[in-house]
Amino acid sequence: MIDLRSDTVTRPSDAMRLAMSRAEVGDDVYGDDPSVNLLEQEAAELSGKEAALFLPTGTQANLVALLTHCQRGEEYIVGQKAHNYLFEAGGAAVLGSIQPQPIDAAADGTLPLDVVASVIKPDDVHFARTKLLCIENTHNGKVLPLDYLQQAWVFTREKGLALHVDGARIMNAAVALNVPLSTLTQYCDTLTICLSKGLGAPIGSLLCGSAEYIKQARRWRKMVGGGMRQAGILAEAARYALLNNVERLREDHDNAQWLANALSAIGVEVMAPGAQTNMLFLKVPAHEAAQLGGWMKERGVLMSAGPVTRIVTHLDVSRSDLEKLVSLWKEFKQSINTQSSTTASKAIYG
């Protein structure tokens, strides 16, 4: 199957599996796993932070980040469609009694700072204390501009807020801007890096921040069930991903851009701004959207089809796979047109 639903469907390469099989391991809860320790050290250096923490999932990494930043009854400001608000089962509210204050993102994926300022709560017993601003980079495949990151950093210093970046695809952002990761992460207190999306590891995320912050986060990780033992096998997959699979993200970006042009040429509506990274959003007429997913699946293509269809390129999707997709989509549109003509004829002639 050609799986275009998400870059989470990637599978470890043979080289990654070999690295995993050779991993030195120990008990990570005791701090004895050399592969985990090396990964955390390298991730801290890569992000320009003092320390890093290896967690099993991006959802747990974001949860631990919020629990470490905010106490019960405090608040974080976040995008209305951000992953750590909308798609993580309300964990911060349920498990941390942390209040989210969602706002709408701008068209470019940023959270407008004037709107952020307007929802910061005054120092009054009636309100939750606003402690944290969370932004997402990339957001629906959109790369947050460098000047915005700098402005958000200055803004949060002035307002007394911490700044956390959900960096599930932050490596895609760095590659798209052609800058080192630290150029982006100098403008935040903490960030997460997901390893199991475009980077191709089977599991894992990193939380990066100050040494004191990560010390507290390690306690929260244990509390929410993230204490791991011989996790070096997974850490070596993560190290392989960071060493070998970052620059190759350009291939995914190029493939997404190629696909945007190819689909547009056959009459598929590509939504603005097109493909900045490895995500493409398409506007599909309702009568086509109802049939598209099943029709493609029967022909070996998996996608999240709907009136807005998201396609995600990744290391397990080749240019030839995308050429096949375009050919199939053209065939699909022809079949839809034939159906419409037949229906119209029946209506006229009975």
Score class of each variant (00 low, 15 high):
L207C: 02
L38P: 04
T68N: 01
V78S: 10
G141V: 02
L132H: 12
T338E: 15
H126Q: 08
W295H: 11
W329Y: 15
P307M: 09
K215P: 00
A89Y: 14
S345C: 08
L113G: 08
L95Y: 15
L181Q: 07
G226T: 05
Y76M: 13
Y187T: 04
G227H: 10
S318K: 02
N261V: 06
V284T: 07
I311Q: 03
V175N: 02
I135G: 06
A231C: 00
A173E: 03
A93M: 12
L315P: 04
D123R: 07
S320M: 09
H83A: 14
T10D: 14
P273Y: 01
Y85W: 14
L292N: 07
F127K: 04
A260F: 05
I266A: 13
D108H: 02
A272E: 14
A82C: 12
R250Y: 12
A82R: 01
T185P: 07
L53K: 04
R299G: 00
V317A: 05
V326S: 06
R319D: 14
Q230P: 10
T8G: 12
V312M: 13
V36D: 09
A176R: 08
M171E: 15
L181H: 03
G26R: 10
V154W: 11
L282F: 10
S6F: 14
I266K: 06
L39T: 04
A107Y: 14
W258N: 04
S318P: 03
G274T: 04
D124I: 03
M228V: 07
S47G: 08
G109K: 05
T183C: 12
Q80S: 09
R239C: 07
N337E: 15
E75H: 04
A256Y: 12
P112L: 10
T185G: 12
R5V: 09
Y76C: 07
L163Q: 07
R5W: 07
V125C: 05
G274R: 02
Q99C: 09
A256H: 08
L144A: 09
V143R: 00
H69V: 04
F332P: 10
L282Y: 13
V36E: 11
